[in-house]
Amino acid sequence: MRIIVNGEAQTVAATTLEALLLELGYQGAIVATALNRDFVPCEARADTPLAEGDAVEIIAPMQGG
Protein backbone atom coordinates (compact mmCIF):
# COMPACT_ATOMS: atom_id res chain seq x y z
CA MET A 1 0.00 0.00 0.00
CA ARG A 2 1.10 3.57 -0.56
CA ILE A 3 1.45 5.80 2.50
CA ILE A 4 3.41 8.88 3.49
CA VAL A 5 6.19 8.37 6.05
CA ASN A 6 7.84 11.49 7.44
CA GLY A 7 6.69 13.46 4.42
CA GLU A 8 7.88 10.96 1.79
CA ALA A 9 5.66 8.64 -0.27
CA GLN A 10 6.48 4.98 0.27
CA THR A 11 5.03 1.65 -0.76
CA VAL A 12 4.93 -0.78 2.16
CA ALA A 13 3.56 -4.23 2.96
CA ALA A 14 2.76 -3.44 6.61
CA THR A 15 -0.88 -3.31 7.66
CA THR A 16 -0.35 -1.99 11.22
CA LEU A 17 1.78 0.74 12.67
CA GLU A 18 3.86 -1.80 14.61
CA ALA A 19 4.52 -3.83 11.46
CA LEU A 20 5.54 -0.64 9.65
CA LEU A 21 8.15 0.15 12.29
CA LEU A 22 9.58 -3.37 11.91
CA GLU A 23 9.54 -3.11 8.11
CA LEU A 24 11.39 0.21 8.21
CA GLY A 25 14.05 -1.07 10.63
CA TYR A 26 12.90 0.60 13.84
CA GLN A 27 12.75 -2.65 15.84
CA GLY A 28 13.66 -1.87 19.44
CA ALA A 29 14.12 1.85 18.76
CA ILE A 30 12.62 4.42 21.10
CA VAL A 31 10.43 6.56 18.87
CA ALA A 32 7.23 8.58 19.01
CA THR A 33 4.60 7.88 16.37
CA ALA A 34 1.65 9.71 14.89
CA LEU A 35 -0.92 8.55 12.37
CA ASN A 36 -2.68 11.28 10.41
CA ARG A 37 -1.45 13.83 12.98
CA ASP A 38 -2.81 11.88 15.97
CA PHE A 39 -0.29 10.60 18.53
CA VAL A 40 -0.23 6.78 18.83
CA PRO A 41 1.26 5.42 22.07
CA CYS A 42 3.60 2.45 21.76
CA GLU A 43 1.15 0.06 23.42
CA ALA A 44 -1.47 0.83 20.73
CA ARG A 45 0.74 0.38 17.66
CA ALA A 46 -0.02 -3.33 17.15
CA ASP A 47 -3.76 -2.55 17.05
CA THR A 48 -3.46 0.55 14.85
CA PRO A 49 -4.28 -0.35 11.23
CA LEU A 50 -2.81 1.47 8.27
CA ALA A 51 -4.83 2.42 5.19
CA GLU A 52 -3.93 3.61 1.72
CA GLY A 53 -2.88 7.26 1.81
CA ASP A 54 -2.26 7.46 5.58
CA ALA A 55 0.41 9.85 6.83
CA VAL A 56 2.77 8.46 9.47
CA GLU A 57 5.33 10.43 11.44
CA ILE A 58 8.14 8.62 13.23
CA ILE A 59 10.20 10.80 15.53
CA ALA A 60 13.34 9.73 17.37
CA PRO A 61 14.51 11.67 20.43
CA MET A 62 17.55 13.90 19.99
CA GLN A 63 20.19 14.88 22.49
CA GLY A 64 21.80 18.23 22.77
CA GLY A 65 20.84 21.72 23.58
Rank of each mutant, 00 (worst) to 15 (best):
Q10G: 05
M62K: 01
A51C: 08
A9E: 15
N6I: 07
L17P: 03
A44V: 02
L50H: 05
T11N: 14
A29F: 11
R45I: 13
Q10I: 02
I3R: 07
L22F: 15
A34E: 01
Q63M: 15
Y26Q: 01
A14C: 11
E8Y: 05
G7W: 12
N6V: 05
A29I: 07
A51V: 03
V40R: 10
R2K: 14
P49E: 08
A34S: 09
D54K: 02
T48R: 11
Q10V: 15
R37G: 06
L24V: 13
L35Q: 02
A19V: 10
G7F: 14
V12D: 04
A51R: 12
P49S: 11
I59Y: 06
P61T: 10
E43F: 10
A19I: 12
E52P: 06
G64I: 09
P61C: 11
N36A: 12
E57I: 06
L35E: 03
G25D: 07
L17M: 10
A14H: 07
F39R: 06
Y26M: 07
V31Y: 08
E43Y: 14
G65C: 02
T33E: 00
N6D: 14
T15R: 15
D47S: 15
T16A: 13
I30D: 12
Q10D: 01
N6S: 08
G25I: 08
A55H: 13
V40Q: 01
A60N: 03
Q10N: 08
Q27C: 08
F39C: 02
G65H: 00
F39P: 03
V31H: 06
E43R: 14
E18D: 15
A13G: 10
A29L: 10
P49T: 11
A29Q: 12
L50Q: 04
E52N: 08
P49C: 13
I30K: 15
